[in-house]
Design a protein around this nucleic acid. Structure first.
Lengths: 329, 329
DNA sequence: CTGAAAGCGCTTACAG
DNA sequence: CTGAAAGCGCTTACAG
């Protein structure tokens, strides 16, 4: 390992104190009121010696690590993979590094990750919380560590968050189905106390009040089984003419099952999906879906978090989604 | 922010030196030859005060950050997303934290990420290098920083690596197509100097020598256009009876185009894909594909890297893949 | 405008 | 078996 050059090396080389070097190189030149000429010499020497500041030492002194901890609910879900990518991109613009974890929808795993990240002394968290994890979120807040929730939030927890307007997105989507003439709707969602899930359901209910409709709730832990069961019921007893899927995963798995059953979309039955998926491209007819502003969610969450880190303010942001729907035929 | 308790707090509480506390709490009790009773008291106090060691201070002193930098070639590719997840899981078992970056197949971006990660003082790298990035890899080696390449390696660069046996995987896969009776094969790969790509091509050539075959090379930067062009040629002039795709992305995008064209698989044409994809589930007939041992690649790379960090040894590991092929009908 | 110095929280020879 | 002390590389009041 090549020996690293330190502030001291630079200071010695030009015969000034490390204090001056520190001021100049960390951009606090005016604060130290360093002389023009000296500052120039210091910068010159730093370049010559190829000085690389030691972040560790800086962190120890300042208590800031310039690291943010991102914990998504399920990294194997392309939606969250995109979120992760967006957050990473955005933080890098602020000179921050992101460390990523996945709670896999488990409160227990979230707790562990939070502990690990706190030990790593992250400057703040961006979290997409799993069901029933208010306590852990409140724990972070009680420690005074900045946090911004993303995609999901708790109505009764006072934290920064950036989410999509789930209720209105769903209302808009369902209204579109009604406009197309569908009259017997099935809504497939998770059984969850998370606000975004409740909002999507409410949005569905609000829009579908004038037609026949039924809500199916799947337990996350038994997804495969219960989803297929619900779809069987939708096909055989409810005989719905359109299915609204409340999430990305439900959409893809639902489409998979429908395809296996030989159902033609939209001929036999239409669907309204949530979030984009690559698999839509394998259908001859475009799959209608709600497109959340993933990039923007990620970006805004980083903005909210960095703001909070700076001045301890809380930011709540609700973004609009886009309905991706070509005409029925 | 709650005030953190430090070694000193513990030392004061029971009236010993911080040295003793450090020895005991970092598990070097025998090295410091600390008395049984004292050690017990220290552990007790640490628990009572809920002591959390400060990693930053430790890192500054020891020069180790317990962080590994993972740079995949394209995080939006599910193959690499799985690799990332595997690496993260595995490193966490060693008390290491992973920071992730994506070079997006760009040498330039790789260089930047490497610089950022070196500044962060990662203890080692796990990298899936893009085309023409030997220099950057050799630069890391020249700095004496441990590194393990994953999925891809350079024959003439002496580094640790963990890869799949690409040549034999492809030979086995193509032989299977021959067994099924296909006689006119198309091989669709990237134009790349990366060893794994050359190996896959060689594997194809070795196995297909006795039948009609043609190789198509796509430039990564113009993938969409060139892939569709190649497929048109395969369908219209070569009139191949089976297509072998050399990578994950080519497989999915290729299938997408074939589906759009209304090609029925395997009736009109069969395909051999590389890596698993969720989209395969949307075909009525199982898609034949080579399944790389992703979990194991990730795991072995972490093992190789931690070994190298410990004793500076280089490990080269080649894993076998699995051919996922149900009978033709 | 500049320097001497303390201190962030650890680890680790060294002396006893 | 235990303590005093140096030092990792920075930042930042403080004094001049």
């Amino acid at each position: 390992m090549v020996k690293k050059v330190s502030l001291k090396d630079i200071a010695q080389k030009i015969g000034v104190s490390t204090a001056l070097v520190s001021y100049v190189l960390s951009g606090n030149e005016e604060k130290g009121r360093v002389g023009k000429a000296t500052a120039e010499k210091i910068r010159q020497a730093a370049k010559e010696l190829n000085y690389q500041p030691n972040h560790i030492a800086k962190s120890l002194k300042t208590g800031k690590t310039n690291t943010v901890g991102l914990i998504v609910a399920d990294i194997s879900n392309p939606f969250f993979a995109s979120i992760a990518r967006g957050v990473e991109d955005e933080t890098s613009h602020y000179g921050l590094t992101t460390i990523i974890g996945s709670s896999d929808e488990s409160t227990e795993k979230l707790k562990n990750l939070v502990d690990v990240f706190i030990k790593r002394q992250v400057d703040g968290f961006i979290i997409s919380p799993p069901d029933n994890s208010e306590e852990t979120i409140e724990y972070i807040i009680s420690l005074g560590i900045p946090i911004c929730l993303i995609d999901r939030h708790f109505d009764h927890v006072d934290s920064s968050y950036v989410v999509t307007d789930n209720k209105s997105s769903m209302t808009k989507a369902v209204s579109h189905l009604l406009d197309l003439g569908y009259k017997n709707l099935a809504f497939v969602a998770y059984n969850s106390s998370l606000q975004h899930m409740k909002d999507r359901e409410q949005g569905f209910l609000d829009a579908s009040s004038k037609v026949n409709s039924k809500v199916y709730k799947i337990n996350f832990s038994k997804q495969q089984l219960e989803l297929n069961g619900a779809l069987d019921e939708i096909l055989n007893s409810q005989k719905a003419d359109a299915i609204v899927f409340a999430t990305n995963t439900l959409s893809v798995d639902g489409l998979k099952y429908l395809t296996q059953k030989g159902i033609q979309i939209p001929k036999d039955l239409n669907v309204m999906c949530f979030d984009f998926s690559e698999v839509y491209d394998f259908f001859y007819h475009p799959i209608i879906h709600v497109k959340q502003p993933i990039e923007q969610l990620a970006k805004e969450s980083v903005i909210a978090l960095t703001q909070q880190i700076k001045d301890n303010t809380i930011h709540k942001k609700v973004l609009n989604s886009e309905l991706m729907a070509k005409s029925r035929e």
